[in-house]
Write a protein that binds this DNA or RNA. Structure first.
Lengths: 116, 116
DNA sequence: TGTCATGTGTACTACATGGTACACGATTTT
DNA sequence: AAAATCGTGTACCATGTAGTACACATGACA
């Protein structure tokens, strides 16, 4: 699924229950030209900037990290976290590359519960 | 320490023991114009592309992840790892943001030792 | 003393990014 | 039937990115 198709789908789902989710009105609410949003949804242009993806995510009730990934980007705050300690996080991520989801979840849970 | 100063410093250290580490010769070995490397080292231009940073790291025997971080970038392979499972890694990284170094190291060690 | 390598200043460039502006025909609403 | 709304096509643009090309003055050195 491309970024555009995903957005179009999400927006149309909303539209079916709320007719303010037209291309024009959503575009206006997030502050871009309707024709631009239209092109985004048909993958006629590259996915928009991180800021615009976030606005879109908020508007459509979608997860920003997921949408950003579909847009080929990584959230700026995550980039900053990595850049603070690049070698440490580089090693960690490369270790976790092929780990199963539940392993990553359990690591996150351990840390959240503060047992370090 | 800026990217430029760090590179200049690293290169001059090498130069003191091996006179092939002049701006011109290093530039030639990594395939850029000498004037460009000169400007990079004096922070007169933004840090170069990821590819060039990597060549520079290899040439100077420095850690690529560290250099990339100084250049305000995150390694493309790490970005790809995150984009495979953006929500999972987003949560993990945000949890680890303020964790002490040793906690991150121990997590990496646990995973490496395969106990999941 | 002439040659050669060194670092750097100036000017320019190709391509990517992230959009805007506006008109048009089709459909819907009143 | 008129007015408003809809999605979209075409054209354009400002800024950023990642450099190249080349000349110049300086210092080493043989």
């Amino acid at each position: 699924m491309t970024f555009g198709k995903y957005i179009r789908n999400a927006r149309e789902n909303r539209l079916s229950e709320d007719r303010t989710f037209s291309v024009r009105q959503v575009a206006q609410r997030i502050g871009v030209e309707p024709s631009y949003l239209s092109k985004i949804e048909r993958d006629q242009v590259a996915p928009p900037s991180e800021a615009t993806v976030r606005l879109l995510a908020g508007e459509l009730g979608e997860d920003a990290d997921l949408l950003l990934a579909m847009a080929g980007k990584v959230s700026g705050d995550l980039r900053n976290i990595i850049m603070q300690r690049p070698q440490l996080f580089a090693e960690l991520l490369r270790q976790l590359k092929d780990a199963p989801d539940h392993a990553i979840e359990s690591v996150a849970r351990e840390i959240r519960d503060g047992d370090w």
